[in-house]
Simulated assay, not measured.
Amino acid sequence: MLWQDYSALTLLLFKSAIVLSFSLILAWICSRGLKQAVQHFDKTSSHWDDTLARAARPVLTLAVLLLGVSLMVDFLLEYIHLEEAELVGQVRRIVLILLIYSLLIRYLRLVRNSFYQTNRRAVKMDKATLEFMIKLLQIGLTMAIVLTLLQNLGVSISGLLAFGGVGGLAVGLAAKDMLANLFGGLTIYMDRPFVVGDKISLQNQQIEGFVEHIGWRQTRIRGYDRTPVYVPNALFTNLAVINPSRMQNRRINVIIGLRYQDFSKLNAIIQDIDAYLARHEGVDHGRDALARFTDYGASSLDLLVRCFTVDIDWSVYMKTRQDILMGVGEIVTRHGAEFAFPTRTLDIPEGTPFSSSS
């Protein structure tokens, strides 16, 4: 009857209004509560609590609203005397999967950003390693979500995986060099022979500079002349990489030559140079710092001066090297000795006539 339909429609609208009102109130409470949680967790040194609350806030708010819409759909199906269709259940599962995916992806992105904040240094992690881990998790999560969605849509996963195996073999044969670069990038991320900012050089390749970016396929190195060099990652797996940025000390290794006339002063000069190196602040006293007479040269007494600097910075190293060389020169001069230079003595027999040319 008409009045019964009108009564049922009124009840439907009433229940829908109540559900919608409660959904809006719960969504507002959820949003406000998580906002307060974010403000509280921002004061902590942890990366995980505030990023989780910040990532969950929009997703959970939307989930509460969609829950209200889902209940209203149930009321509508009951009003038209239709049992819950399979399509409705499928849509609900897909929406739930997408909400979970959105929450996890947003959380990973916020975690990555939080590591770059200057006030968050509780966890030390290299930038390249962090990017690699985030990308790997995002790819794995996306693949899992896609397979789950396909399974919910009725697509055969086993057949898809079998086709993917054959297709992957064909792609691997066709893109051998690209895959080699990808695995080379994976090796760099796992072994970490260098990181962004390191100064490196490739042996026998005349490539030297500072690492600016480590990608999946190639690495960008900025040369001393500020020219970028793009190196395929596969090259790093077959060549020796020299990384001066990780040296513990820089070495000063100098051979100086004294005149043969200064042989009697040699021992005193060596002792004074040893004492000078022992009290120099720029020299690492935990390693060998010495001056030793090494050889009789063609025109000089060869003296080795060797030590290691504390600082590996190039400008500091050059200043320390200059100080030590100046100090050694002052010690030699103070003892009345002189540095030798290449000379040759001619032994002319007595009575040998000389002809003068006009």
Rank of each mutant, 00 (worst) to 15 (best):
L20W: 04
Q271V: 09
L149N: 00
R334C: 03
L77Q: 04
Q206P: 00
Y230G: 07
S245W: 14
D347M: 04
I273Y: 12
G257T: 05
L65M: 11
V241D: 06
M247I: 02
K319S: 10
G351H: 08
T227H: 09
Y189P: 00
P349K: 15
T320K: 06
R120K: 15
L76S: 14
L2T: 01
L67M: 11
A340L: 10
I157Q: 11
A175Q: 04
V231C: 05
V305I: 09
R220M: 06
A291N: 05
L147P: 01
L130V: 08
L141E: 11
G351I: 06
T61S: 15
S299M: 10
A174R: 08
I221C: 12
A174E: 04
M72N: 06
L277Y: 03
R112Y: 05
A240R: 15
L11Q: 11
I256N: 05
F354Y: 07
S245K: 09
Q271N: 15
A340Y: 10
V211R: 13
V38A: 13
V283A: 05
L136A: 11
S7M: 09
I134K: 13
G185F: 04
A289Y: 01
I97D: 03
S201Q: 06
M247L: 12
A37I: 01
V111D: 07
C307K: 00
L186H: 04
T294M: 12
R54I: 02
V254G: 12
V211N: 10
V95P: 01
S23Q: 08
G327E: 02
G286R: 06
C307E: 11
G215H: 05
I273M: 14
R120G: 11
G297F: 08
I100H: 02
D302H: 10
R92T: 11
L304Y: 05
C30T: 09
M178G: 14
S70M: 15
K35W: 07
V231L: 13
L137N: 08
V88W: 03
M190R: 12
P232M: 15
L34Y: 08
D347G: 01
V171T: 08
R92P: 00
L150F: 14
L67A: 06
P244T: 12
G140L: 10
A162S: 03
